[in-house]
Design a protein around this nucleic acid. Structure first.
Length: 422
RNA sequence: GGCGGGUUGCCCGAGUGGCCAAAGGGAGUGGACUGUAAAUCCAUCGGCUCAGCCUACGCAGGUUCGAACCCUGCACCCGCCA
């Protein structure tokens, strides 16, 4: 087995780490317990969360024990790291709901069976019972405001629009989590995004002061695309969510297959478990025959399988082939066409067919009727791969494929289906 | 608590009485080119029953033929002083 640290380096997954030699020495002695935490800030985790989550899994595969932490407590407070402005607080009920949601997602990426099963914890379990006085005396006393002010997450705010006492305290909560896991689970390594460095090292200090023990920290880089944009933040239609209700497997697959040549090899390293030989072969293929998009196809396939499973991946691939194939849509058999359109997102219409612009708006391809009209005027609207010239007249029944389907397209690659239900 | 500055479209930001649905940039979207790539160029970028109309420049009210721009009150943000 290759050394896990070497592997992480090769994959470009180490942004910062504490004494690497000491960590290597510790890893050489035997299995270690590693943790990464995820706060419930949204309905679902997104593609960016995958990087630390997969890092945890990489450790697990290398024989170590993974602890996944859902931030039921920290989610109530709000992490100031990487944010220019204060977060608005979610209600406790809302946070509880979000925690339940992300717990399900988190548990899909680590293995709970086998010789070194992962565990899933919620920091609310040990944080909620603590009184304010205990917190101030047992945790707060170990931090000087001076060092807290020096943290990037805080100083950035001091120069900007300020920071509430609530968010200022965040690093103490996260530090206490690490201390708790160190004591109760023998956790010696915390992994997080590079914006977590300050919070993680604060935890190391706390562990050292309280127990005299030594633990380690490792951050994964913030993934950006070739244009330097934060990954997964904005992908045109919004974030790339792991939840299939928010980002369909088809849309997820399409995102990756559209990856920039300059990004695709890096992403194979950071987001997949393909080994070095496979990645290098795909890199060579991309350099020689970029138009074949072999690396993009593999990336999309791997990631869709990882997140949504084999069946959904097969459907996404089939839908992509049907819609992007240069064949005549009317030659597709009804089952293939219907499956592809449902996969891409199909609008059900009852009774009479409305106009093409109305369909564009209703299907969500256009964000309003005005937007749909604009698209038609610009020559970017297609019905069954034929450019729409007059968008305001009702679509003729004769356009229906197999008597019930319409293929709507906006631009070169955004499809939606329309299914007429009589 | 006092004084000063600010609040403009998805974001940044110009505009200080009519020429403002609001300059410029970014993001987004469509087109050309291509490989479902990048770069580049062009267009577009509040809504609608779309040659017109409606809604919009923190909120509410006022002055005016006419207000994002002037006045009053309120809210919030930033800075300085206490």
């Amino acid at each position: 087995m290759t050394d896990i640290i070497d592997e992480l380096h090769w994959r470009g997954l180490i942004a910062q780490s504490t004494d690497e030699d000491a960590l290597r020495a510790r890893l050489a002695e035997g299995p270690i317990t590693v943790y990464a935490g995820f706060d419930p800030t949204a309905e679902s985790l997104h593609a960016g969360n995958l990087v630390p989550l997969l890092a945890l899994r990489r450790f697990q595969r290398a024989g170590h024990r993974a602890v996944v932490l859902a931030g039921g407590a920290t989610g109530l407070v709000g992490d100031p790291s990487g944010r220019a402005s204060e977060r608005s607080l979610n209600t406790p009920e809302r946070v509880r709901e979000l925690v339940e949601g992300i717990k399900v997602q988190l548990s899909a990426f680590v293995d709970f069976d086998g010789p070194n099963p992962a565990i899933l914890v919620n920091n609310l379990d040990w944080t909620a019972p603590m009184s304010a006085l205990e917190f101030l005396r047992d945790v707060g006393k170990h931090f000087t405001v001076n060092q807290m002010l020096a943290k990037e997450s805080v100083s950035a705010r001091l120069n900007g629009e300020g920071i509430s006492y609530t968010e200022f305290s965040y690093m103490l909560l996260q530090s206490n989590d690490y201390l708790h896991l160190y004591r109760d689970h023998g956790c010696e390594l915390q992994i997080g995004g590079s914006d977590q460095w300050g919070n993680i090292t604060a935890g190391l200090d706390l562990i050292r002061k309280v127990t005299g023990g030594r633990a380690h920290a490792l951050t994964v880089p913030l993934i950006t695309n070739a244009s330097g944009e934060k990954f997964g933040k904005s992908t045109g239609g919004g974030r790339l969510w792991l939840d299939p209700e928010l980002t369909s497997p088809y849309a997820w697959y399409q995102y990756w297959i559209n990856a920039d040549d300059r990004d695709v090899v890096n992403w194979l390293r950071t987001f997949t478990f393909l080994d070095r030989d496979e990645v290098e072969a795909l890199a060579a293929e991309t350099a020689e025959r970029p138009f074949a998009r072999a690396a993009q196809r593999r990336l999309a396939e791997e990631l869709t399988t990882l997140v949504h499973g084999k069946d959904e991946t097969a459907k996404a691939i089939a839908a992509s082939q049907a819609l992007f194939g240069r064949g005549d849509l009317s030659e597709l058999d009804p089952a293939t066409l219907g499956a592809a359109l449902r996969e891409a997102g199909a609008l059900r219409v009852e009774g009479a067919l409305p106009s093409a612009t109305a369909l564009l708006a209703q299907s969500g391809l256009a964000k309003s009727l005005s937007d749909a009209r604009r698209t038609v005027a610009e020559g970017g609207a297609y019905l069954n791969n034929v450019k729409v010239t007059d968008g305001d007249v009702p679509v003729a029944e004769s356009e229906l494929l197999h008597g019930r389907w319409l293929v709507l397209r906006k631009g070169k690659k955004t499809f939606a289906g329309v299914e007429l239900v009589r």
